[in-house]
Deep mutational scan, measured.
Amino acid sequence: MKVIFLQDVKGKGKKGEIKNVPDGYARNFLFKKGLAVEATPANLKELE
């Protein structure tokens, strides 16, 4: 799953980066803790 990092995550990505991460990791950790959002067209547009 492609995500946009909202904060630096040690060993995974830095704020503003767009990266592919495993689905479970994204849903169960990154999204729940507010560290990233899914890289949807709407979210990508907001990032610009």
Rank of each mutant, 00 (worst) to 15 (best):
K10H: 11
G13N: 02
K33A: 12
Q7I: 11
N20W: 15
Y25N: 04
K15H: 05
L6S: 03
L6P: 00
N20P: 07
P22R: 08
P22V: 07
A26K: 03
G24K: 11
G24F: 13
K2I: 14
G11M: 06
E38A: 12
M1F: 06
V37I: 14
D8P: 05
K12N: 08
E46H: 11
A36R: 00
P41E: 14
T40I: 06
G16M: 05
A42Y: 07
L35F: 10
G13A: 11
V9K: 01
L35W: 12
N28I: 07
N43T: 11
K15N: 03
K10Q: 13
E46S: 12
P41M: 11
K33I: 10
I18N: 01
E48L: 14
G34D: 05
N20D: 13
A26H: 03
K45E: 12
K33P: 02
D23Y: 14
M1R: 07
K12A: 15
K12F: 15
V9Y: 04
I4S: 01
L35K: 03
D8M: 04
R27Y: 11
P22I: 06
A42D: 13
K33Y: 15
K10F: 13
L30S: 00
F29P: 05
D23V: 15
K15F: 06
K32A: 14
E46A: 15
L47D: 06
V21G: 00
G34F: 08
E38I: 08
A39L: 07
L6T: 07
R27L: 13
G24A: 12
V21H: 01
T40L: 05
K12Y: 15
G16R: 03
K19R: 12
L47W: 14
G16S: 04
L47V: 10
A36W: 01
G16K: 02
N28E: 14
L35A: 04
G11V: 01
G16T: 02
Y25D: 05
K12E: 12
K15I: 09
Y25G: 03
V3F: 00
F5I: 01
L47Q: 09
F31A: 02
A42L: 09
E38T: 06
R27A: 07
L35R: 02
A42S: 11
K19H: 11
A26V: 07
L30F: 02
G34T: 03
K10N: 10
F31T: 05
L30G: 01
E17H: 05
V9R: 01
K12L: 15
K14Y: 10
G16N: 07
A26F: 12
E48D: 13
K15G: 03
E48N: 11
K14W: 09
G13R: 01
L44Q: 08
F29S: 06
Y25K: 04
G24N: 13
D23S: 14
K10V: 11
N43L: 12
G24V: 11
G24Q: 13
K33L: 15
N28D: 15
I18E: 03
K2F: 15
V21D: 01
P22F: 08
V37R: 08
R27D: 06
M1A: 05
D23K: 13
L47G: 06
I18Q: 04
R27V: 12
F29V: 14
P41S: 11
E46D: 13
V9I: 08
K32E: 12
L35Q: 03
K19S: 07
T40Y: 05
K19L: 15
R27E: 10
G24H: 15
V37M: 10
K33T: 11
V21E: 03
I18Y: 03
Q7G: 05
G24L: 12
E46Y: 15
V37W: 05
L30Y: 03
E38M: 09
N43F: 10
V3A: 01
E17P: 01
L44S: 05
K45V: 11
G11F: 07
K10G: 07
A36S: 01
E38K: 07
G11S: 07
N20K: 10
D23R: 12
N28S: 08
K33D: 11
A39G: 03
F5Q: 00
N28P: 00
G24P: 10
L44H: 05
L6F: 03
K14P: 01
A36M: 01
K19G: 08
V9Q: 01
V3K: 00
K12G: 13
V21A: 03
R27M: 11
E17F: 03
E46L: 15
L47Y: 15
L44R: 08
V9H: 02
L30T: 00
E38N: 04
K45G: 09
G13I: 04
V21I: 08
G34L: 08
K12T: 12
T40A: 05
K10L: 14
P22S: 11
A39S: 05
G34P: 00
I4W: 03
D8A: 07
T40D: 05
Q7R: 13
A39W: 13
E48W: 09
F31H: 02
K2R: 14
K33V: 10
L35E: 01
